[in-house]
Design a protein around this nucleic acid. Structure first.
Length: 331
DNA sequence: AACCAGGAAGTTC
DNA sequence: GAACTTCCTGGTT
């Protein structure tokens, strides 16, 4: 797990609030997992955040008790590169070697072996950093598309800020906090200090501040690398995007299982059969996207049923409650 | 109670 | 006019 933290050094250094995402103590936040029984209810303990884990010692047991605000839902199953990273051949590492997660310090010894080691380590960390930033950008990209907001918080209107807050509430199962940020544009939000955030919501101010900071940092990172990143430039070029169709919205949620599998997931991806696991949640997300605060599953399901005669979605042959099927699945 | 089906009318683009 | 949204009646799980 500390792979992520090591790789995020650059982001973290640029983002003072990020440390609070890692270190602050707030009530447990649930992290999306396909199986609710295996989801991690994360609360931070001091021992969990000490960087004592070697890259080579990472295993699933190290995952528990770690709060990963934005990278939290990355699982080995859904992110094969994580597995690859654990297989990165380190140059003859001594047993129990540990990796400090602080920014690389100047090499003190001139021993050529440890110098080579430290160079390899740096390269490894650099690779991880690149991949983590990529994941951050992808997640922000998805949220931007689903919410129809700009990636840069500085561009947000009051409504965009409210959307982002509502989304964050739902993503992390927070209580309703958006009302204490009414009448604020993204620029207002960005000019607020962490203390300002805490003043508005003492319990979640630091977390929100850090979450916003990740968006800002991600945006900076995206600006640096967007020339080589098609998905990022898509967001920039397409904003403001065309009105999204409900079937596209559902498909986009399904394409991000590490974020949304707790509310919607594939039963049979090849056949396009999916199940809405949390009908109220999906309806709420759709309502946020469409600026329809009164949206509920009754209405959303009526919209889905409109697709029956259009041949876009149908009920599968072996049907069930909350189970639907894309007629022409193209993945 | 929650979900399902579909008619009818309204809204937004 | 398309694509929903809202409201509704009535049926099923």
């Amino acid at each position: 797990m500390f792979l992520f933290f090591s790789g995020l050094n650059t982001l973290r250094m640029e983002s003072p609030g990020y440390e609070h995402m890692l270190y602050s103590t707030h009530p447990p936040l649930y992290i999306s997992q396909p199986n609710p029984d295996t989801r991690m209810a994360c609360s931070l303990k001091e021992e969990d955040i000490k960087p004592t884990c070697s890259l080579l010692e990472i295993n699933e047991h190290n995952w528990s008790g770690v709060y990963m605000p934005y990278y939290d839902r990355l699982t080995i199953e859904e992110n094969p590169w994580l597995l690859r990273m654990t297989e990165v051949p380190a140059p003859a590492p001594p047993p129990f070697r540990t990796v400090d997660l602080s920014p690389p310090a100047p090499t003190q010894t001139q021993d050529p072996h440890s110098e080579m080691e430290s160079q390899a380590e740096e390269r490894c960390l650099e690779q991880v950093h690149t991949m983590v930033v990529g994941e951050v950008l992808k997640d922000i990209d998805t949220a931007c598309k689903l919410l129809n907001i700009a990636p840069d918080p500085m561009d947000w209107t009051c409504m965009h800020v409210q959307k982002w807050l509502l989304w964050t509430e739902h993503l992390y199962r927070l209580p309703q906090i958006s009302m204490v940020f009414q009448e604020l544009t993204g620029s207002n939000l960005c000019s607020m200090t962490e203390a300002d955030f805490r003043q508005r919501t003492s319990q979640f101010g630091d977390m929100l501040y850090a979450h916003l900071d990740i968006w800002r940092s991600g945006n900076k990172a995206g600006s640096k690398g967007k020339c080589d990143d098609d998905s990022w430039s898509d967001v920039v070029c397409n904003y403001p995007s065309q009105p999204i169709h409900l079937w596209q919205f559902l498909r986009d949620l399904l394409r991000k299982p590490h974020n949304y599998s707790r509310c919607i997931r594939w039963l049979n991806k090849e056949k396009g059969i999916f199940k809405i696991e949390d009908s109220a949640h999906v309806a709420r997300l759709w309502g946020i996207r469409k600026n329809r605060p009164a949206m509920n599953y009754d209405k959303l399901s009526r919209s889905i049923r409109q697709y029956y005669k259009k041949g876009i979605i149908r009920k599968p042959d072996v049907s069930g409650r909350l189970v639907y099927q894309f007629v022409h699945p193209v993945w």
